[in-house]
Design a protein around this nucleic acid. Structure first.
Length: 224
DNA sequence: CGACCGATTGACT
DNA sequence: GTCAATCGGTCGG
């Protein structure tokens, strides 16, 4: 009897979580990359890890377009970047600097090679799990948990195994909040989106394809 | 095959 | 502010 009740409570809890962050449909990703990039601000990255769901609000992104010299896809499909050429709505995770991972959302139709880099999220659910996964002491700076592309990948346990994951599936997805709680802000209005050149791109005529939520503490490199 | 370097981070002067 | 860590991708010989 007790076991049945516990199971039912657990079942309801899980469904609450799933319903709270409703998956974006495939059609969301099959749109122009800059549009998707801006619309991803304020959305919620959900990552199933064991029985828990890690959740973070996306606060900073960068767009990597078709025929973009700064994009990994610029020189065509390789084993490394092949996921970028899949249909929009898949996760492209790449390894860099010999020790870090960064994650992107593939956009537009198959073979376009477009994606949006997720540069920072604001922790929302199961923050203690993120803290455990990050090796660093964040007691003096809470933002250090997820205020960078490789930091959030470490916090959310995103690596080689997650490369190619379908965001319309059960393991990792991006959603809209259905039930808003006190620490979740309203949808992002256009005047609260700041555009700057992308970080670490050395092209002198770099476009302003980095977008972040104005005033959000988890945005990386605020001196930019 | 060797040299160079990167959509970064953390430690340190 | 500077800089090492660390390794796979890319490019030239």
């Amino acid at each position: 009897m007790i076991i049945v009740v516990c199971y039912l409570i657990f079942h309801v809890k899980v469904n609450e979580m799933l319903n709270s962050f409703k998956r974006l449909p495939r059609s969301f990703y099959l749109r122009p990359t800059i549009t998707v990039a801006k619309d991803l601000l304020g959305k919620f990255l959900v990552r199933k890890l064991g029985r828990k769901y890690l959740v973070g609000k996306i606060v900073e992104v960068e767009a990597y377009l078709h025929n973009d010299p700064a994009s990994h896809s610029f020189r065509g499909k390789t084993k490394r970047n092949e996921v970028m050429f899949s249909e929009g709505g898949h996760l492209y995770v790449y390894f860099t600097y010999g020790m870090h991972f960064c994650c992107n959302v593939v956009t537009e139709e198959e073979d376009k090679g477009c994606a949006v880099l997720i540069r920072a999220v604001e922790p929302v659910e199961n923050i203690e799990v993120m803290q455990h996964r990050r090796k660093i002491d964040i007691s003096k700076n809470q933002f250090n948990l997820t205020n960078g592309p490789a930091k959030l990948c470490q916090a959310f346990d995103l690596g080689r195994e997650e490369n190619g994951t379908d965001l319309c599936g059960e393991k990792i997805w991006i959603g809209d909040a259905i039930r808003l709680t006190s620490h979740i802000s309203s949808p992002i209005s256009n005047r609260d989106i700041i555009s700057t050149p992308r970080v670490g791109i050395t092209n002198p005529s770099e476009h302003k394809w980095r977008f972040y939520i104005k005033g959000n503490g988890w945005v990386s490199r605020k001196n930019n």
